[in-house]
């Protein structure tokens, strides 16, 4: 049991180092590729945490399609990130304080894998029993997804549909109304 947790801790540490590299880099292509690697390691994490369906989804969606969309969008954008003028001290300080508070609170969370944790007491045993008797499908995740929580999944499908239609409306405008960038300067000159 301890070896499983050790693998887990190791993978999480890899994710931490990838995200630190993400803070350091200023090149857009590195950013995209590191995000893809981050998703792939997250998929491995999900396998060690027994979530095979989620790992499947993360590997195909997070590491596959998402990277392709980032690369396709990257072609129209500047390739380098500029150095910021303002200091990043205040954002970093507030993140560190908030993270410290969260870590302090983590001592109140149940330890990983405890059968007595509140989350395992409420309705999950009901679903595991019902998936065999009421529905007769071996994959509990599918039966909860499509049958017990069918309304949720309906809503999520509509959200995906709406997001797709919104992107089509934003990007398929052939002649976007352009605000001419040189216009303000011309006005300025006329006044002077």
């Amino acid at each position: 049991m301890i070896s499983e947790l050790l693998i887990n801790a190791f993978l999480v540490t890899i994710m931490l180092s990838i995200s630190i590299a993400l803070i350091k880099t200023r090149t857009v292509i590195f950013t995209v590729i590191l995000t893809s690697a981050y998703s792939l390691v997250a998929a491995l994490m999900f396998i060690t945490l027994d979530a095979v369906d989620v790992a499947f989804t993360e590997a195909s969606v997070g590491a596959g399609i998402s990277t392709i969309l980032f690369l396709a969008a990257m072609a129209y954008l500047p390739k380098k990130e500029e150095e910021s003028i303002n200091s990043q001290f205040i954002p970093a300080l507030s993140c560190i304080i908030l993270g410290g508070i969260l870590i302090w609170c983590s001592y109140d969370l149940p330890e990983i894998g405890q059968l007595t944790a509140p989350i395992h007491q409420h309705i999950a045993p009901e679903y595991i029993r019902g998936s065999k008797e009421d529905i007769g499908i071996p994959n509990i995740v599918t039966s909860v997804l499509a049958s017990y929580r069918g309304y949720d999944t309906f809503g999520e499908t509509i959200v995906v549909f709406t997001a797709g239609v919104a992107v089509l409306m934003l990007l398929e405008n052939k002649n976007p109304v352009k605000k001419n960038k040189s216009q303000p300067k011309q006005k300025f000159k006329k006044n002077a």
Binding site: V52, D53, T57, S60, V61, G64, N139, L145
Partner: peptide, 17 residues
């Protein structure tokens, strides 16, 4: 997807790929 890992979300992404 009823018997092993899988389902509509993953299959949709694979066909799209």
């Amino acid at each position: 997807g009823d018997f092993g890992p899988g389902g509509g979300f993953q299959a949709g992404v694979i066909v799209a790929s």
